[in-house]
Amino acid sequence: MQRQVLAIAGVELELFEAGEGPPILFLHNGGGFSPDQPFVALLSARHRLIAPSHPGFGRSSLPDWLDSCDDVAYVHLALMDRLGLRQADIIGCSIGGWIAAELATKAPERVRKLVLVAPEGVKVGPPDRLDIPDIYAMPADELERISYHDPVQMQVDPSRLSDEELAIRVRNRETTALLVWEPYMHNPKLRRRLHRVTAPTLFLRGESDGLVPADYIAAYAGLLPNARVETMHAAGHSPHLEQPEAFGRTVLQFLEAAR
């Protein structure tokens, strides 16, 4: 992939790009984007895949005024302006899905089709129960267990990472906390804005996702006028990483189908 850094809305934004064809804006999850993630080749085979690192993730700077997914959505809208993308398909994973949903409420006409992979961002349950389990109040191994269908397979050995790679992982985790801490994993206003999102929308959820429950995704999809839900087998919270081929196939089918 080609890597560049663009000055966008006061952010030094790291941007990866590969492939040609109809543009896909890919918005990564809290773990960050890496060009060697296995779904990249599948999506960029017939599309122009554009993957920014959100502010405060990867090698993108974090301006001191930025502290919400709502803020990040404006940065990515400015990125679309800069790249001359009148319209694009948008895929967002986890908090990237939340950011994509925010973006789509602000400028529905800029989104051709929308894929939200286990997104957070709304509050649909009662006040005395967290919709998303508190990832900051559980041991790391418990978080891994509920995040993946096969946690052992997805384990990363820190000793195999360089200091810079480790620092990026730590910083990604830090910026995620900044964005999702309070209100926890949601923007109370978002659910009242989602009616504006007219693009055909596909919600994807891994069947073993212990973070984002099935009824949460069903309720979330019900807030958009034109959305449906698909469940991915043998996958947890990150189907794009655990089942990259099935993920690529499902997404491309949806994006390339006649409207």
């Binding site: 900051y136 620092a167 730590v170 910083r171 906390a177």
Partner: peptide, 19 residues
Amino acid sequence: HFANPPGYVPVQANVAMLR
């Protein structure tokens, strides 16, 4: 997970802990 929430100590200190 209670003793070291993300962002409480600088990135480099957390890298050292992971090491």
